[in-house]
């Protein structure tokens, strides 16, 4: 009952925050200097008819309305699933963001799998073997991993694995002119994905390994670990059942943000590897004052963040029974 009331309150909170942020975002973007209609028209229109065309397009896009009216129209349409009209691509936003979103999610999903598959065992192992040579070596590597800028790692990876040893393509999503389908198409795409996924994973592995290590070290210091060991439990059971479970709470936080981040594109990675994703789309949208695209993406991230927080709270209760969902 308490849980239900808590979730209801959180839902009301989410709706309230969503509307406040939507007003703020809309107002901020509308206040930015730069004219989307002018960006849309380019310089190709003869001056004799420029103003006439300009006025027609402005009216068609509803940009002549007062800002509050524009907001109400925009938010109403958005709640109906109509995310607006892209002035850059001259088509509905929903027709524009589908492919980049798929590319971004694909890249981030594989990256996340690799990060957690490597970082969690590595974090546990380094915690268990704290201060050993292995632990120190991994610590150095992980510091390098998350402190070196991703564009440097990307260029280094391209140089090593695409130029010096040409195992992977330099950039792109598919081979130019490739006509295969099914498994062949998947393999071609996978080949192009390996380098960007690896580069994206380096930073994540570095930070999450250290995160898991720190949590595990704290957990391994607890009295219940000593109790478990004194009961004669096997070390694996002590580590994975008793210690790791208690170390999970901070890991859940990180995992939730990674899940939310699945939909957030990396401008650097996408630009260097020419992986057409949401990060690049966001930058293009901003530079072209394509507010419908930018606002749709921003609000999507707002919803993800708000819902993600609730999911995180629920996840805490699952990994730690002491946590209760209540005010």
């Amino acid at each position: 009952m308490r849980k239900g009331r808590y979730l209801l309150k959180r839902l009301i909170y989410i709706i309230f925050v969503f509307f406040i942020i939507s007003i703020l975002m809309f107002t901020i973007y509308k206040a930015l200097p730069g004219d989307p209609v002018k960006m849309m028209m380019g310089d190709n229109v003869k001056p004799e008819v420029y103003q006439q065309q300009y006025d027609i397009i402005r009216e068609q896009l509803g940009l002549d309305d007062p800002i509050p009216v524009q907001y109400i129209k925009w938010i109403t349409n958005m709640l109906r699933g109509d995310f607006g009209y892209s002035t850059e691509y001259r088509r509905p936003v929903k027709d524009v963001i589908g492919v980049p979103m798929r590319n971004t999610v694909l890249l981030n999903l594989f990256s996340m799998i690799i990060v957690f598959a490597v970082a969690v065992p590595l974090g546990i192992t380094t915690a268990v073997r704290k201060n050993s040579i292995f632990d120190k070596f991994i610590q150095v590597i992980t510091i390098v991993g998350y402190s070196v800028p991703s564009f440097v790692i990307a260029l280094l990876a391209i140089y090593l694995f695409a130029i010096r040893i040409p195992l992977f393509p330099i950039s792109g999503v598919k081979t130019a002119g490739f006509e295969g389908t099914g498994m062949a198409a998947f393999l071609d795409s996978a080949k192009h994905m390996i380098l960007p996924v690896l580069v994206m994973s380096v930073g994540g592995i570095g930070s999450i390994t250290r995160y898991v290590r720190a949590s595990m070290i704290d957990a391994l210091r607890m009295d219940y670990i000593k109790t478990a060991r004194s009961k004669g439990l096997r070390e694996k059971v002590v580590i994975y059942v008793h210690a790791f479970r208690n170390a999970l709470v901070p890991v859940v936080t990180v995992t939730t943000w990674w899940l939310i981040g699945l939909f957030g594109g990396s401008v650097v990675i996408e630009s260097i590897f020419l992986w057409d994703g949401l990060g690049k789309m966001m930058i293009t949208g901003l530079s072209q004052r394509d507010f419908a695209v930018v606002l749709a993406m921003q609000m999507f991230y707002v919803i993800l963040s708000l819902v993600g927080n609730v999911l995180m709270d629920i996840a805490y209760t699952l990994v730690d029974p002491r946590v209760r969902l209540e005010n």
Partner: peptide
């Protein structure tokens, strides 16, 4: 017979030419 257009980036375009991908 066939022309394919793909995007390149300033950082790696010359390498793409060298690698034969463009």
């Amino acid at each position: 017979e066939k022309v394919i257009i793909k995007t390149v980036t300033a950082e790696t375009e010359i390498n793409e030419l060298k690698a034969g991908t463009v």
